[in-house]
Measured scan of single mutants.
Amino acid sequence: MQFKLIINGKTLKGEITIEAVDAAEAEKFFKQYANDNGIDGEWTYDDATKTFTVTE
């Protein structure tokens, strides 16, 4: 399945899409990606669109 991350950071904005087995695997990848890029904010997930959003 495809999952999307929308980044609304103070210094980094954009979107990335990955293939993952389930939402838990996608969330783990996205949170590591955000951590690696210094993004720390509020997370939301929309199951209907398979979209995670992080907002700083």
Rank of each mutant, 00 (worst) to 15 (best):
K13F: 12
M1Y: 11
N8D: 12
E56I: 06
D46M: 05
F3Q: 00
I39M: 13
E19Q: 13
T49W: 14
M1G: 14
T51D: 07
I16Q: 04
I18P: 00
V54E: 01
F29Y: 03
K50F: 06
G9F: 03
D47W: 13
T44H: 04
G9D: 13
I7W: 10
E42L: 07
T51R: 12
F3A: 01
T11G: 11
T55P: 01
T44M: 03
D40P: 11
W43F: 12
V21I: 05
N35H: 13
Q2A: 10
K28G: 08
F52V: 02
K28Y: 14
T11R: 02
G14T: 08
K10M: 08
K10V: 09
Q2E: 12
K13E: 15
V54C: 02
N37L: 10
G38I: 03
G41S: 01
K13R: 06
N37D: 06
D22S: 06
E42S: 10
E42Q: 07
D46V: 11
A34I: 15
E25V: 10
K31W: 11
D36Q: 06
K10N: 08
A34S: 04
L12S: 07
Y45Q: 05
A23Y: 14
A34H: 02
F30D: 00
T55I: 14
I6Q: 14
A20E: 04
F30Q: 00
E25K: 15
D40W: 05
G9S: 06
E15H: 03
N37Q: 07
E19W: 09
E42A: 06
D40N: 03
K50E: 06
N37Y: 07
V21D: 08
E25I: 03
E27N: 10
Y45K: 15
T11Q: 15
M1W: 11
K28I: 08
I39W: 06
W43K: 00
A23T: 12
Q32T: 07
L5G: 07
E42I: 05
K4D: 06
K13H: 10
E56L: 03
Y33K: 08
I6R: 10
L5I: 02
F29D: 07
T49G: 14
E25M: 05
T44K: 14
E42C: 02
G9L: 09
E19A: 09
A23N: 05
Y45V: 07
E25A: 14
N8R: 11
K50A: 13
W43C: 01
F52K: 00
E56N: 04
A24N: 10
L12A: 03
A34W: 01
F52L: 14
D47I: 13
A48D: 15
G38N: 13
F30G: 11
G41A: 02
F3V: 02
K13M: 13
D36P: 01
D46H: 06
Y33L: 04
I39L: 08
K28A: 09
F29G: 10
A24L: 03
A20V: 04
F29Q: 12
I7Q: 04
N8W: 05
E15R: 02
F52G: 00
K31Q: 05
Y33G: 01
V54G: 01
K28N: 10
T49Q: 06
K31E: 08
G9I: 11
F3R: 00
E25W: 14
M1A: 08
A23H: 15
N37M: 06
V21F: 08
E56W: 14
A26D: 00
A20Y: 11
F52I: 01
T17S: 15
A24F: 04
F30T: 05
I16R: 09
K4L: 12
L12M: 09
Q32A: 06
Y33V: 04
T17G: 04
T55S: 08
L5A: 02
D47F: 14
N37I: 15
T51N: 12
A48E: 14
E56C: 03
N35G: 15
L5P: 00
K4E: 05
T11M: 07
Y45D: 01
K10S: 13
K28L: 13
T49F: 04
F30C: 02
I16D: 11
A48V: 11
G41T: 00
A34R: 02
G9V: 11
Q2C: 04
I6F: 11
M1T: 08
L5M: 10
D22R: 08
K50T: 11
T55Y: 11
A48K: 12
K31P: 00
T49A: 11
T53H: 08
T49E: 11
K50Y: 15
D22L: 07
I18R: 06
G14Y: 05
T53Y: 04
T51M: 08
A20K: 08
K10L: 14
F52Y: 12
T11L: 06
T55W: 05
E19I: 09
G38P: 04
E56T: 03
I6P: 00
V54K: 00
F29H: 14
N37P: 01
E19P: 12
L5S: 00
T51C: 03
G14N: 09
Q32S: 04
E19C: 04
E15S: 03
K4F: 02
F29C: 04
N37S: 07
E15D: 03
D47T: 14
Q2L: 10
D36E: 02
V21E: 08
D40K: 05
E27Y: 14
Y45I: 10
A20C: 02
M1I: 14
T44I: 09
F29V: 04
F3W: 15
I6W: 14
E19T: 12
D47E: 02
E25Q: 14
V21R: 05
E42H: 07
E27K: 14
T55D: 09
F29K: 09
N8C: 02
F52Q: 00
A23W: 06
T55N: 04
E27H: 13
K50W: 13
E27L: 12
E27D: 10
F52C: 01
L12I: 14
K13V: 10
F3H: 02
F52H: 14
Q32R: 03
T17N: 13
T49V: 12
G38D: 13
V54H: 15
A34Q: 12
L5F: 04
L12F: 05
I6D: 11
A48S: 03
G38F: 15
T51A: 15
Y33I: 02
G38E: 06
N35L: 13
A34T: 15
D36C: 03
I7E: 01
E42G: 05
E27F: 12
G41Y: 01
G38S: 14
G9T: 08
V54P: 00
T49R: 12
I16H: 08
D22W: 08
E42K: 14
D47G: 06
F3L: 12
N8L: 04
Q32H: 08
G9M: 09
F30N: 01
M1V: 10
K4A: 07
G41Q: 01
A48Y: 12
G14K: 05
D40F: 11
I6L: 10
D40Y: 09
T53K: 06
Y45T: 09
T51E: 11
Y45P: 00
G9E: 02
T51P: 00
D40A: 07
V54S: 04
V54W: 01
W43H: 02
N37F: 03
I16F: 06
A26I: 01
N8H: 07
A24M: 04
Y45M: 06
E15K: 03
D22Q: 14
N8E: 11
F3P: 00
K4M: 04
E42V: 03
K13G: 15
M1D: 15
T53E: 10
E27S: 06
A20M: 07
G41D: 04
T53M: 07
T53S: 07
T51V: 03
F3M: 14
E25H: 11
A48N: 09
I39F: 13
L12T: 10
T11E: 05
Q2N: 02
W43A: 01
M1P: 04
A24H: 15
T53V: 04
A23D: 14
I39N: 03
E25T: 15
K50D: 05
A20Q: 07
Q2R: 14
G38V: 06
A23L: 06
I18T: 08
L5E: 00
E15L: 02
N35F: 12
I39Q: 12
T55V: 10
